[in-house]
C-alpha cells in the first residue's frame, strides 16, 4: 500500500532535515557563520583592550557581529542549490511553501545557534555582563526571527538572479536597518543601560517586524523562486 500523501508540515520538515543533514556533512554555512563571528569578536576584543564598554556600544557591537555573520552565510542555502543545479530538482519536486519555510527554519536554527555560542564569548571577551536575561533572550529570539525572515527571501532573490557578492548586503541593509535600530535599543537595556520604559514598544515592533517580514517573504517567494 502506498504511503499517504505528505502534509505541508511533513514537506517543510523534509526540506529542513535535508538542509540540516547536508550542513552536518559539509559545514558549508556553519564555517562561514561562526568563523566570521569569532574573528570579528576577537578583533573587537583586542581593539577595546578590555576597557569598559558602555551598554549602547556593546549592543551595537553585538548586532554588527550577528548582522554581518548572517549576511556571510544565510544566503548560502539558496546560492548553493542554484550553483550545484539542485535548485532545478527542488523546483520540480517541492511546493514553494515547503522550500520557503524549510529554508527559513534552517536559517533560524543556524542563527539561534550562533547567538547561543556568541553570548558567553561576548560577555567574557568584551567584559560586558548581561543584567536582564529575560530581555536578552527575548531580544535574541525576536532578532533572529526578523533577520531570518528577511534574509531568506533576499537570499533566494540573489541566488536566482545569479548575482552574488555584495548585493546581498546592499539589498538587506536598508530592509534590516529599522530592525537593527530597535534591537540595539532593547539589547542596551539587557546590558543594564537605556530606558526600560520603551521596552514594551520595542518588543512590539520586533514582533510585528518578524510577522510582517515572514508573511511578505512567504507571499513573495513564489515570484522569486519560479519566475
Amino acid at each position: 500500500m502506498p504511503k499517504a500523501a505528505s502534509s505541508s508540515a511533513d514537506r517543510i520538515w523534509a526540506v529542513f532535515a535535508k538542509d540540516a543533514r547536508s550542513e552536518y556533512r559539509t559545514r558549508f554555512a556553519v564555517n562561514a557563520l561562526f568563523l566570521f563571528a569569532l574573528v570579528t569578536l576577537t578583533a573587537l576584543s583586542f581593539a577595546t583592550g578590555g576597557a569598559g564598554l558602555t551598554p549602547l556600544l556593546a549592543s551595537v557591537f553585538f548586532w554588527v557581529i550577528v548582522f554581518f555573520s548572517a549576511l556571510s552565510s544565510l544566503a548560502q542555502t539558496f546560492v548553493k542549490e542554484v550553483e550545484t543545479k539542485t535548485a532545478t530538482f527542488l523546483r520540480l519536486t517541492a511546493p514553494d511553501d515547503a522550500v520557503f519555510f524549510g529554508k527559513w527554519g534552517f536559517n533560524l536554527l543556524l542563527l539561534l545557534l550562533l547567538e547561543v555560542v556568541l553570548t558567553p564569548l561576548f560577555i567574557v571577551m568584551l567584559n560586558m555582563p548581561v543584567v536582564n536575561w529575560t530581555v536578552w533572550i527575548a531580544t535574541l529570539i525576536l532578532g533572529a526571527l526578523g533577520l531570518v525572515s528577511t534574509t531568506t527571501l533576499i537570499g533566494a532573490l540573489i541566488a536566482v538572479a545569479g548575482v552574488r557578492g555584495a548585493l546581498f548586503s546592499v539589498l538587506s541593509f536598508p530592509v534590516l536597518l529599522p530592525l537593527l535600530v530597535v534591537l540595539i535599543r532593547t539589547t542596551e537595556v539587557a546590558f543594564g543601560g537605556g530606558l526600560e520604559a520603551g521596552l514594551r514598544d520595542g518588543f512590539l515592533v520586533l514582533g510585528a517586524y518578524a510577522v510582517v517580514a515572514t508573511t511578505a517573504g512567504w507571499m513573495l517567494f513564489p515570484f522569486v523562486w519560479r519566475e
Binding site: S22, T26, T88
Partner: peptide, 17 residues
C-alpha cells in the same frame, strides 16, 4: 511540477546525500 519528471544536465541531485 507535480506531474513533470526531468532528466537533464541542468538538474542535479544532492552530492552530500
Amino acid at each position: 511540477h507535480r506531474h513533470i519528471g526531468l532528466v537533464s544536465p541542468e538538474l542535479a541531485l544532492y552530492e552530500e546525500l
